[in-house]
């Protein structure tokens, strides 16, 4: 196990180095072989972006923290709503019939198109920011949780009911633990989405946050800051993903979704 972990680290490092080399090479080709006049904006050198990041790390981290906290709030709200909806829908077939089609419809409404309407309704910029982030995240959580709850085989449910367990007990002992791996799959998708949503909301108009930095950089043609901000947002997304992975390991240690264990097994 210890060896697997060490190997894993080597793999990760090789991947990171590989990507940087390919990126650097691509930027070089674009600039000196293709002679693209817009090369610096299309694909700047990673080292130039890294330098910009180091020069502005404080500003970027501060902006990132603002965005991340909004994302976390929206994520928490979206997750709670998503789980609740899934539970309600699994409780009653009628409920599912009513709610599910509208869940889908709700996702087809482009949130950016909704933004001015949400501002109209909520009338508070901060609340509407969290609402939008929650709105984007609740769907994958709900869909995954529901398919998890529905995947419980009927015989198992019947067995529990036959020993006179009530509905609450069945959920607690069977359904929830079973649906956990599905839920976490949903959370893994939702967490970076919450970050993305939060950045979008910054870009809609806000005083602080990484999205504002992206917008300003885009607008003023400072492509290195732009790419450094995009990189920062990507990091934020990855961190959010790993927070969920970490939580999953904590909650479901029997699961086999971690790469190290996979390697041992397959």
């Amino acid at each position: 196990m210890a060896i697997a972990k060490k190997e894993q680290r080597v793999v990760a490092i090789v991947w990171v180095i590989g990507i940087i080399v390919v990126w650097e090479l691509a930027a070089f080709l674009l600039k000196y072989v293709v002679h693209d006049p817009m090369a610096a904006t299309k694909l700047p050198y990673p080292h130039a972006v890294a330098m910009t990041f180091l020069e502005n790390w404080k500003m970027l981290l501060e902006a990132g923290a603002v965005t991340f906290s909004r994302a976390a709030l929206g994520f928490a709200l979206g997750t709670s709503v998503g789980i609740l909806l899934a539970v309600f829908m699994s409780l009653s077939k009628t409920m599912e019939r009513i709610a599910f089609p509208y869940l889908i419809v709700s996702q087809m409404i482009p949130v950016l198109g909704l933004a001015p309407i949400i501002f109209n309704i909520v009338r508070d910029m901060n609340v509407s920011r969290v609402v939008i982030a929650a709105y984007i995240t609740f769907f994958p959580v709900s869909v995954n949780m529901l398919s998890g709850l529905k995947s419980v085989e009927q015989d198992k449910k019947d067995l529990l009911f036959s020993i006179a367990a009530n509905k609450f007990k069945v959920y607690q002992k069977l359904m929830f633990p079973f649906a956990m791996s599905y839920l976490f799959t949903g959370l893994k998708i939702a967490a970076p989405m919450a970050v993305t949503a939060s950045i979008l909301v910054d870009m809609l108009g806000s005083k602080s946050g990484i999205g504002v930095k992206i917008l300003y950089a885009l607008y003023s043609n400072s492509s290195n800051i732009f790419w450094a901000s995009v990189l920062t947002s990507a990091f934020m997304g990855i961190i959010s993903f790993y927070i969920v992975v970490f939580a999953e390991r904590l909650c479901l240690p029997w699961q086999n979704t971690t790469p190290g264990k996979e390697g041992v097994r397959a």
Binding site: I189, T196, L200, M203, I214, F235, G237
Partner: peptide
């Protein structure tokens, strides 16, 4: 990649 804001 999933974490990169597409709008940007």
């Amino acid at each position: 990649l999933n974490a990169v804001p597409i709008v940007a």
